[in-house]
C-alpha cells in the first residue's frame, strides 16, 4: 500500500478543517506498519481513505496496485478491515454474522479454527449487544480475517482487551505478518506498537512527523548509555580509576556521592569490556543495570502537542 501527498479538508461550522496536509508512507507485505499520533492527528482519516471509505482532496492511494475508492469486489476481497467502532450489528450473534461474512468469499478462512483460536466459541450464540468490548474486538478481528486477506487494516486492535486476550491478538498479528500479510494498525498503546511494529509512522497535525523502524525512531542504532546502581557510594579510588574514554555521570541529586550512575561513550566491545573490568577490579556489584534507550512513548511525547 502506498499513500502519497494525501490531503483532506472538511468543512465545519467553524470553517475549513485541514485534517490531512500531505501524508506519505508505504506499508509492505510481511510487515506490521503502525500509525501513531495524538488525538486528531489524522490516523483514522488516513486509514479511512486507504480503505476506500473516503476520498482524498489531493494525493494518490494505491492498495495492491489499485485506487481503493474505485475498488471492485476483487480488490475488496483481498483486504480485511477492522473498524475502530467495530461495525458489528448489535442484534446479530457472532456465529450468524461470521457465517454471513464468510459466504461473501469464494474461499473463506477456516472460521472454526479462527473462532476457537480467538476464544469466540464460548459466546458465539450471544447477541453482539450483550458482549464486552474485548469480546466485540475479537469478533471484529475474526470478521476482518474472514476472506483470507492480503492486506489487513486494524484500527485499535487491542482496545478493551484483557492481558490474555491482548497477548492472543498480538500472537495472531505476528503470525499474519509471518504468513506474508501487510498489516496496518493504529493504536494509542505505544507498548503495543513497540512490540508489534516493523515500521512506525508518527502523525501530527495531518502530516508525517517521523517514520521508520522502532530502532530508528528511538535512536537505538547508535551507542546507548547504560544505567547502573550500587549499594554503597563509590570510593574516591574507584572514581579516579574509571576507564578513560568513558564518561561516568552521577544521576542522583547529591553527586558524586550518590549510588546511581549513567555511563556514556560505550561505542565498542572494548569499551564494554573496560566497564566490566572496572566493576571487577574495584569489587563493584552493580544492580539495576539497563540500557537507557528512548522509548517510543518518549518519542511520541516529543511529537504530541
Amino acid at each position: 500500500m502506498s499513500l502519497e501527498g494525501l490531503q483532506k479538508t472538511v468543512r465545519s461550522r467553524r470553517g475549513d478543517l485541514h485534517i490531512l496536509k500531505g501524508v506519505d508512507f508505504h506499508a509492505r507485505s510481511g510487515e506490521v506498519t503502525a500509525l501513531l499520533g495524538p488525538n486528531g492527528a489524522g490516523k483514522t482519516t488516513t486509514l479511512t481513505i486507504a480503505q476506500g471509505l473516503d476520498r482524498p482532496d489531493c494525493g494518490t492511494v494505491r492498495l495492491l496496485g489499485e485506487d481503493p475508492w474505485h475498488a471492485g469486489a476483487a480488490l475488496r476481497s483481498q483486504v480485511g478491515v477492522m473498524l475502530q467502532d467495530g461495525g458489528l450489528p448489535p442484534s446479530a450473534t457472532p456465529a450468524r454474522l461470521l457465517r454471513h461474512i464468510c459466504s461473501l468469499y469464494r474461499e473463506p478462512a477456516d472460521m472454526a479454527a479462527l473462532t476457537e483460536r480467538l476464544g469466540i466459541d464460548e459466546f458465539s450464540g450471544r447477541d453482539i449487544r450483550r458482549l464486552s468490548g474485548g469480546q466485540k474486538q475479537r469478533v471484529a478481528l475474526a470478521a476482518a480475517l474472514a476472506g483470507r486477506p492480503r492486506v489487513v487494516f486494524l484500527d485499535e486492535p487491542s482496545a478493551g482487551l484483557d492481558p490474555v486476550s491482548r497477548q492472543l491478538v498480538f500472537d495472531l498479528i505476528l503470525e499474519l505478518k509471518q504468513a506474508g500479510l501487510a498489516v496496518v494498525l493504529t493504536t494509542h498503546l505505544l507498548d503495543d506498537a513497540e512490540r508489534l511494529a516493523d515500521h512506525v509512522v508518527l502523525l501530527r497535525d495531518g502530516t508525517v512527523e517521523r517514520s521508520g523502524s522502532v530502532a530508528e525512531l528511538t535512536d537505538r542504532t547508535g551507542p546507548t548509555p547504560v544505567h547502573f546502581s550500587v549499594p554503597q557510594p563509590l570510593g574516591a579510588d574507584a572514581l579516579a580509576a574509571f576507564p578513560s574514554g568513558l564518561h561516568l555521570v552521577a544521576e542522583g541529586p547529591s553527586a558524586p556521592a550518590d549510588c546511581t550512575f549513567r555511563v556514556e561513550g560505550l561505542t565498542s566491545p572494548d569499551a564494554w569490556a573496560d566497564l566490566a573490568g572496572w566493576w571487577r577490579d574495584h569489587r563493584i556489584m552493580p544492580t539495576d543495570v539497563r540500557l537507557l534507550h528512548r522509548s517510543l512513548e518518549e518519542v511520541f511525547l516529543e511529537v504530541a502537542p
Binding site: Q51, G52, L53, A71, G72, A73, R76, S77, V79, V81, L83, G86, G87, L88, I101, L104, Y105, A143, G147
Partner: peptide, 9 residues
Amino acid sequence: AYLSTTPLG
C-alpha cells in the same frame, strides 16, 4: 461502513 469494505460493496 464495514460491509462496504467487504466484497459486497
